[in-house]
Amino acid sequence: MASLFLLAVWAEMKMVYAELIRRKYMLLMLAAYPYILMIFILLIGMSIGNRQIFIQRIGVSPEIFFLVSGFLIMSILGTSDDLLWRPIYDEWIGTLPYVIASHIPRLYHYLAIPIPRLLIAFFTGLTSVLPLMVYYYGLHGFIEGLAVILLGLFSSIIFIPFIMVVMGFIYGFGNVNWRVINVIRPILLVLLGAYYPRYLMPLAGYIVSSLVPSSHVVEAIQRLLIGSLNGLYAFILLGVATALFIVYSPIGVYSIGLWEKRKISEGVKTE
């Protein structure tokens, strides 16, 4: 069974890397992404606000906050993009019938789909988050930076079953359409709390956001950065995130099944 999962990961790696290696500028884009985001936001930020106020309110320098947020967004939303795009892409190029007619367990397949890009995200973390943290905090920054990167990857992986639930229901009841992604993305962005820390949200926002497993890890990362994370609280946050991952997994598989059934009842397109 585990070998089936590894096989799926191997297949997805081939797929993504074949595309990336054959389009090198994509690789460059990925490496530059967190920096670009950070600079962009800092420029906007400096034109409307004051650095000192930011540090007072958030508790960490804006460079670090926005670079880490950029990294988190890239790996977490990259994961949901990968998943949400796949059925649309498969339908478009005509591979969908062969994928639906395959007998790989769907959880394995969907867990495998974002992994190649997460590995790339890992290296992007090493080239963006890590140097900046070392520059600010030295050796301590190195360890903290590594923790941030690993937690970022963790938050991306536990995002997968949640996205499976969302996508199965949306595609199953509505329609498979790329426009849907444009609607979901900003909502996810807010709920994750990467740019607007969750502990500053109004209560309702806080509650909805806690249904998203990754948001807990994002909070843990932010608290780590501002130095207000103690062992117990970290344990609770990561524990809740893991529990949600486990709860969402079977619902996600069910939800994907729902979508596939809908596809089959109207006929999987072949032309």
Binding site: L4, L7, A8, W10, A11, K14, M15, A18, E19, R22, I93, G94, T95, P97, Y98, V99, S102, H103, I104, H109, T270, E271
Partner: peptide
């Protein structure tokens, strides 16, 4: 239709072979 354009013939077969377990 029905294959990934950026993959070679062999890579495509490997991909579907993996989905078939």
């Amino acid at each position: 239709r029905g294959f990934y354009g950026k993959l070679t013939g062999r890579e495509n077969l490997e991909y579907f072979g993996a989905l078939y377990g």
